[in-house]
């Protein structure tokens, strides 16, 4: 490749692409500071006339942001915590323990990654509605709303992740058996071996998997939308903002919607910028989104 000449054309292309990528974000931020009647009117102006922060106050009030944030945080924490824990446990068994049926279980875990999510929206929702002995249901799952009215419903279908188990197992295989054997000879049980020796050594995979899971869970929309229609109290940030956008006059509320979006996108963007190396490695390992 020609590295001696300064690659003008390449710089131009890459910079143009980068501008196209970033401009929608800037437009979002600029719109969030626009005053009443300033957004969506002709002629288009990129910059607001005056940077008016009142949309952010309006977003907190109209959107009930504290509730939406709480639900998003709880659901994301439940999912991330559960995926990390179950992946580590199952990954350890598949990587370091010998037992009949191991190959079969491993293949089963791999095959779970094959099924596309849209196959499950309907049955998952019905299963939660008919969950026995919850939300007014009887033992046969009849009579009430089941688990759909509970905040755990947001997290339930995502608590275990086949890819997470696979990733963790691949990482744990590299841990030398001698170390584990030595601990066992010293009288450590398998649980102690896992917790004291394996878990501390798997920090990199925990960060990568945790970050991937966090971003996915925080941004999840379709399932949260379904659960929120059953119970508005468990509405998450994306669902709440979309609802405001759908039901109110767009020229007036657009700046408020954008302010809400800026606030909801910010936590993930900050986390990504701080830990992007780990995130990018995760995307490389997992395939595309």
């Amino acid at each position: 490749m020609n590295r001696r000449r300064f690659p003008w054309l390449s710089y131009l292309l890459v910079a143009t692409g980068a501008v196209l990528t970033v401009v929608p974000f800037l437009d979002m931020v600029m719109t969030s500071f626009k005053g009443p009647g300033e957004a969506g009117t002709l002629p288009y102006r990129f910059l607001p006339r005056a940077f008016d922060p009142s949309n952010y106050r309006a977003a907190v009030d109209q959107l009930d942001l504290p509730l939406l944030f709480r639900n998003s945080v709880v659901a994301t924490a439940l999912i991330t915590g559960s995926v990390l824990l179950t992946s580590s446990l199952a990954g350890y068994a598949l990587a370091k323990l010998r037992f009949p049926g191991r190959d079969f279980v491993f293949r089963l875990v791999l095959s779970t990654m094959m099924f596309p999510p849209f196959l499950f929206f309907v049955p998952h929702f019905l299963i939660l509605v008919h969950w026995p002995l919850a939300g007014g249901n009887d033992l046969l799952g009849r009579g009430g709303a089941g688990l759909t009215v509970s905040i755990v419903a947001l997290a339930m279908p995502f608590l275990v992740n086949g890819f997470g188990i696979f990733l963790t197992r691949q990482f744990m295989i590299a841990i030398p058996d001698e170390v584990l054997e030595a601990a066992r000879i010293d009288g450590a049980g398998e649980f102690a071996v896992w917790w004291r020796i394996v878990v501390p050594q798997t920090k990199p995979v925990v960060v990568t998997l945790g970050l991937l899971t966090f971003v996915d869970a925080w941004n999840e929309y379709i399932w949260a939308l379904l659960v929120s229609t059953a119970d508005p109290d468990v509405m998450t940030l994306p669902v709440g903002i979309q609802l405001l956008q759908d039901h109110v006059d767009p020229t007036r509320t657009m700046p408020v919607v954008m302010a809400g979006l800026v606030l909801s996108v910010l936590p993930v963007l900050i986390l990504f910028l701080l830990l992007q190396k780990h995130y990018i490695r995760g995307v490389m390992l997992s395939g595309l989104k």
């Binding site: 692409g17 980068a18 990528t21 970033v22 929608p24 974000f25 437009d27 979002m28 971003v215 925080w218 941004n219 929309y221 940030l237 994306p238 669902v239 903002i241 979309q242 956008q245 919607v257 954008m258 979006l261 909801s264 996108v265 993930v268 963007l269 990504f272 992007q276 995130y279 990018i280 995307v283 989104k289």
Partner: peptide
């Protein structure tokens, strides 16, 4: 820079 859209929720991308 090119990665920013990937970590952004579809609700933000779609509405913007």
């Amino acid at each position: 820079l090119y990665f920013l859209p990937i970590v952004t929720t579809v609700v933000a991308v779609g509405n913007v």
